[in-house]
Amino acid sequence: MAKATFRIWRGDADGGELRDYTTEVSEGMVVLDAVLQIQADEANDLAVRWNCKAGKCGSCSAEVNGVPKLMCMTRLNELPLEKPVTLHPMKAFPLVKDLVTDVSWNFEIKKRIKPFKPRPPDAEDGTWRMAQSDVDRVMEFRKCVECFLCQDVCHVLREHQLFDGFIGPRFLVHVAALEMHPLDTENRLEALRTDQGIGYCNITKCCTNVCPENITITDNAIIPLKERVVDEAYDPLRRFFRKMTGGR
């Protein structure tokens, strides 16, 4: 059976190194299979996050030969196996150990986004009526598996570490899903413009390129949100109206 070498980052916040592991590979294997095989055979304490192994839970995010990917959906036959496959943890987040990073910041950010607030029910039995086409419009955003690869690759977070002033593509998608939800009545635009830092995004589309769910993050979520923010904050007619009514 064929063998391949995996050059895996081993270490914690205090330091570490890339270490080579050679393991047997067979047809159809994905990177995560190789990592779990190495873990079971020779590195029991190799830290890696995974759950569903089918691209649905978004746990096994890592950088495969420098590219942010889900390890469970990266097949070995897509990689040049004549040289070692390099595996790094996501770079944008603090390292816990080996391939595992501390992504807790993401969970804190989500709590700060105003939750769903539906309009009153449409029918007497307390239910709503929605057209499938309205539902379809936000479905793309709701496919997100929260793997945080888009956060990892976003230079605002990765290079500039602006974790205090920018919520990152994942949560712009989350806000888009809420804002475009057919029933939602909340307004999140002011927060987007200020605390959530939508202006930092300069639409380089790095996030869209790495999304394992193929969500068109920049074009379908971020740009429409930017337009709404601009319309709301800078539209002269709206500004006049706000002044007259004493609103925001």
């Binding site: 769903f116 239910t127 009526r129 929605m130 499938q132 539902v135 809420l178 939800h181």
Partner: peptide, 19 residues
């Protein structure tokens, strides 16, 4: 139905109810 009130979106029937 409660999930829908909390934001879940299910596929719809032609008259806009849960499919």
């Amino acid at each position: 139905r409660e999930l829908e009130a909390w934001g879940a979106l299910f596929d719809r029937t032609d008259d806009g109810r849960i499919l």
